[in-house]
Design a protein around this nucleic acid. Structure first.
Lengths: 213, 213
DNA sequence: GTCTATAATGAGATAGAC
DNA sequence: GTCTATCTCATTATAGAC
């Protein structure tokens, strides 16, 4: 029985690797550091991951699963502003939990070229999901925008969401600072705010109310 | 005479280093590659730059000068939409010429920590200049926006301007593709378009007319 | 100023004992 | 599965001849 109940070393490695990657970027973290943080020997690390790139790939698998779950979760109560604010909160939570994949995407691709296609796919599905949410808001009279405007908006939301942390220059082992997440949230809201109808304004108010992470 | 008219080797090094940095990022370019591209020996490279970081610093000095020239150039004809489109074109030209400093700012800081402060200073002055241009547009009836809206707008413009190339995943030795610059331009225009007055729309039309780089 | 070595480092990765 | 010991390799940097 319980063939899968093994040591858990592999999981521990991924856990500390993600923490280190989020703090400093996986490309700036050595295998020696990961092993030390996981409290195992470096040689043992290579028993589980024959290449450093395989760590990146395993972490990405977790990220992809989490992203699609957030992106494609149905809006709980279509037409209710609070539901869209909730949806947005899911994205910000994800962004923080896997900030390495937002901030260091280019370096991760360089480290594990196999991620290139996978990243594109996840990004495309994520953007498509956001596009549908805006169309949904429009259908419910919360937003007024042309298809072309929504298109450009989704792109800009993706860019600002992906890079606001880098822009803020978040560094090293700093802890989660609620003000920082709030900054990103405000910048993203500023992107779609001009397209909200009078009743749509409630989305931003609901987001502000549910505020922190 | 002409004490300054020396071999030009130093200038040649900076020239090829910038080209390589723009193509692949300075942190992914070795001193051996730079020397080879400059057609000098690696030892000779170290005669001019004792540390690789000094190359980054010298390039940044060029970038800073160019940035401030673009940012703080006066609007030729205040109130004329074409003049603002022209101003915007200056920024996109700069972005392309020094795209390494937009795309790889984090890695450049890691390579030459002394750049940290300098980058912040240039960024702050650049944003302040853009803020003033929007205030100017508003004063001339081309834009309608509150101070808070302009504040968030400037931030988002800075983020999208800085990272749209990374978002597009421009890679390796690819040549300048006009479509790519046009993409960035459209995304930036989409940011401020909602705040333009009827007469302000002409800014976007003028930018489209002057199109390419 | 420019070159030919060559040192010094640091990181990823492997072999094989336990 | 885990460890110790070691290898390989790329890259930055230096010494010193020309």
């Amino acid at each position: 029985m319980s063939v899968r109940r093994r040591s858990g070393t592999r999981e521990k490695v991924l856990e500390v690797a993600l923490a280190l990657a989020n703090a400093r970027g996986l490309h700036r973290v050595t295998t020696a550091e990961i092993a030390e943080a996981a409290r195992i020997n470096e040689g043992n690390l290579y028993y589980y991951f024959q290449r450093k790139a395989q760590i990146a790939e395993a972490l990405f698998a977790l990220f992809a699963e989490a992203t699609l779950a957030v992106a494609e979760r149905a809006i709980a109560a279509p037409g209710d502003p609070a539901a869209y604010a909730d949806y947005q909160r899911g994205w910000f939570r994800l962004m923080w939990d896997f900030r390495a994949f937002y901030r260091d995407a280019t370096e991760l691709r360089a480290m594990a070229p196999s991620l290139r296609e996978a990243m594109q796919s996840v990004s495309a599905r994520g953007q498509e999901a956001v596009r549908r949410v805006f169309a949904d808001m429009r259908a419910h009279g919360l937003m007024r925008a042309s298809d072309a405007e929504i298109e450009a908006l989704v792109c800009n939301i993706w860019i600002v969401s992906s890079y606001w942390m880098d822009f803020r220059g978040i560094e090293a082992e700093e802890e989660l600072r609620p003000e920082d997440l709030a900054f990103g949230q405000r910048q993203v809201e500023a992107l779609y705010a001009p397209y909200l109808t009078a009743s749509g304004q409630a989305v931003v108010r609901a987001a502000a109310a549910t505020g922190g992470p």
